[in-house]
Nucleic acid binder design. Structure first.
Lengths: 117, 117
DNA sequence: CCGGATCCTATCGGATACTG
DNA sequence: CAGTATCCGATAGGATCCGG
C-alpha cells in the first residue's frame, strides 16, 4: 500500500538504496546471479548464457560477487580445471528484488523501449 | 514462494532484467526518484537532498529520466527560472522495486559493508 | 577449460567556472 | 536559480592474445 506517493522515504532509506546499488551496479552482476538460478554452472556455461559478456568482465564480476558473498566458487579438480559457481543463501534473498524488476519491465517496457532500444 | 532455488529464470526474464538495468543504471537515478517521493522539488532542492551529486550529473540524469518518462519537468516562470520536477505514474510503479532494495540491504548490509565500505 | 595480461575506447563522474 | 561548458581522472567495458 505504500506507493511512492503516500510515502516519503527517509535519508536512511536513501542510504539503503545506495548500498544496494553499490553492490549490484553494472550491467552484469544481476544477470550472473540469474544465470545461476537453475543450478550450478561452470565458467563457460555462465558465459554462454549471458549474450554479450566477455571473459574479462565475467571474470572480474565473479570475483566481486564472490568477495561480497553473493556467489560461491568451488574448484573441483585442480588439474582438469573444473570450477563451479553457485549462489549463496545471501544471494537467494535477491529473488524478490529480481522479481520486481521483471514485473516492472513487463508492464512498462513498451512505453520506453519502442523508442529507446 | 519463488526463491531463486525453486525457479529457473528464462532468457526472456534475463532480458527484462537487462532492460530494467538499462533504465535504472548508474549511481543516481533511483536516488533522484526517491528524492521526489515526498513531493515535487526544484533543482536545488533535489541536489541538497542527494549528498554528493554534482550539478552536472543531476542535470544529465534528470534529462535521461525525463526522456524515459520517469519524471516530469515543469517550468513555472520563464523569467524567474522556476522549475519543478515530479515523478510520473510510470515511476510510481518503481515503488515495490525500491522497497525490495531497502528490505534487502536492511537484512544484509552488515554482512558486506563492514568490510567493503 | 579457466581465466589473466594487455591494449584500447567510451562513458562515468568530479571540480570549477560561467551564463541567462 | 537552473542549468552549461570545459577540463580532467577514474572506471567500465570490449578485443585479442596468452598461459596453466
Amino acid at each position: 500500500m505504500t506507493t511512492i506517493c503516500d510515502k516519503a522515504y527517509s535519508e536512511k532509506d536513501m542510504m539503503y538504496v545506495q548500498d544496494a546499488l553499490y553492490v549490484l551496479s553494472g550491467k552484469w552482476k544481476l544477470l550472473i546471479i540469474l544465470a545461476l538460478s537453475n543450478g550450478d554452472k561452470r565458467f563457460m556455461e555462465i558465459q554462454k548464457s549471458i549474450p554479450r559478456i566477455t571473459t574479462k568482465m565475467l571474470s572480474k564480476e565473479l570475483k566481486e560477487l564472490e568477495a561480497n558473498k553473493l556467489i560461491r566458487r568451488v574448484v573441483h579438480d585442480e588439474n582438469a580445471v573444473w570450477v563451479e559457481y553457485s549462489f549463496t543463501e545471501y544471494s537467494k534473498a535477491l529473488a524478490p528484488l529480481i522479481e520486481e524488476m521483471i514485473k516492472w519491465t513487463k508492464s512498462h517496457r513498451r512505453e520506453i523501449f519502442e523508442k529507446v532500444a
